[in-house]
Design a protein around this nucleic acid. Sequence first.
DNA 1: CTTGTATGCGAGCAAACACTCGCGTCAGGC
DNA 2: GCCTGACGCGAGTGTTTGCTCGCATACAAG
Lengths: 200, 200
Amino acid sequence: MQMRKSPRQQRSRQTVERIIDAGRTVLADQGYDAFSTNRVAAVAGISPGSLYQYFGDKDAILTIVIDRYWDEVAEQVAASLNDRIGPGTIGLDGVRSILDALFSALERNPALLRVLTEQLPQVANRERRHALEQRIRDVLVTYLTARPESSRRPDVDLAAWVLVMAVQNVALRWSLDRPGFNRDRVLDEVVVLVGGYLLA
Amino acid sequence: MQMRKSPRQQRSRQTVERIIDAGRTVLADQGYDAFSTNRVAAVAGISPGSLYQYFGDKDAILTIVIDRYWDEVAEQVAASLNDRIGPGTIGLDGVRSILDALFSALERNPALLRVLTEQLPQVANRERRHALEQRIRDVLVTYLTARPESSRRPDVDLAAWVLVMAVQNVALRWSLDRPGFNRDRVLDEVVVLVGGYLLA
DNA sequence: CTTGTATGCGAGCAAACACTCGCGTCAGGC
DNA sequence: GCCTGACGCGAGTGTTTGCTCGCATACAAG
């Protein structure tokens, strides 16, 4: 179920925002198990009944929190992407700064990222993450097509898919697992991974 | 909680196996939501009470199903790895056949793989997947150290980590999302990814 | 056969929790 | 200032589900 009715007055618009904030807070601070409607309502400082005036069910709140999170990540990566993609050939330093943006975006809210990726049924994230991936793949494909000299891979779609899948997991797992490796060196290695693949 | 007591008689050992089988069946066929103790017991053809003679709680059954699954995957990959690692330098065709083994292992039980990775809280898989990753990383590190001519990466540990993370996700997502790409061509690309990275 | 133990049963308990409903309160247009 | 609908309340309901417990049955040792 989705949003039940839209808030008309000022007061209720604040209520809706407080519910969403409370949802994010509970998720990030106490985990998915604690994410009960009663608790979210309590943290939001409202009653459980009020919650159901605007949200059809528990999942509706969860969905909004998830959507907002991935939208923020997408926004930051897209910003860096658009900055670099205008001029001419990107070059390895450009790749690096885009990767840097991705890493930074994932570092913004580690607690929430952890809960979203480790405690939630992934099916909840699936749609949004696919959208994010698709968005980046599209940019990649148009870039690689426009500048064939920057890649030796024959199938552009396939190359973009492989790169996104590979890079995504390196970034994600570095953010979540915090292995002992230095951030800058990991970035360097990913740049090599990408460059080596495209120009092999 | 763990295993509550071990089965002494033949009869009860069969019961335990039937419970585990039922657990796997319910998970793969009906998903995690349907994975209730009562239903598992029903599918196993026993009563809920009997189930708790051997398993401390619901999670104990789940854990065993997960462990067995990842152990099987690890076994198949390790087998291919050990076959290839004995002789001398592996070479790109050797890399390819190891990757092939990984893909095949993930293709064995797609339904269960999907439920484990998409519906379960990932924290349940975490330990086992880390163990699997660590195992492969160790093999990689010893190989790369023993044959420095096969890689130009300065930090062997870091290189192994990056490769495992990158390759893992490509394999996993290809198995789960079934994008339109031909299996062999994906394998080829991953070989290029690995080779290009190590020899860049 | 007897007896102690391992195994199995299944109705039912207790807790958690998503969600409702009837009623009181307040905002804001006229 | 009034009046109507939007807003908010919170105790309560219905259901689900993990798990127990007292008892029956099957097994194996002596």
